[in-house]
């Protein structure tokens, strides 16, 4: 989890998934309104300067998701999102070259 563990804005969460490329993770989660720290899909590959200022390396900044709760988000929505994210992360880690996984 990026940022301070308690002193943070409610409803917004930035999480880094080591060993997973951000754009592929976003691709695998089409039903979720989320953003990545990666700018891979644009002409710039520059990772988030905010995450870098928090001490994340470029690679980890590109492996981050920013999740936000909406006014109508339910607990069931959150549970569903957690399941989908875990499944996608596990799959992408499984196809990555061995030796550098977390």
């Amino acid at each position: 989890m990026n940022g301070h563990p308690t002193r943070r804005a409610p409803g917004i969460l930035s999480v880094t998934f080591d060993g997973v490329e951000g754009e592929s993770l976003l691709y695998a989660l089409p039903g979720l309104a989320i953003a990545s720290g990666s700018a891979c899909a644009t002409t710039s590959a520059e990772p988030s300067y905010v995450l870098r200022s928090l001490g994340r390396s470029d690679r980890l900044a590109q492996s981050s998701l920013r999740l936000s709760l909406g006014r109508f988000t339910t607990a069931a929505d959150v549970e569903s999102a957690v399941g989908a994210i875990c499944s996608a992360v596990e799959r992408l880690r499984a196809v990555a070259p061995p030796g550098k996984r977390p």
């Binding site: 754009e23 592929s24 691709y27 990555a96």
Partner: peptide, 10 residues
């Protein structure tokens, strides 16, 4: 193969 990268790369 095994790969780490964007969807086009994989």
């Amino acid at each position: 193969f095994r790969a780490f990268g964007c969807p086009h790369f994989l």
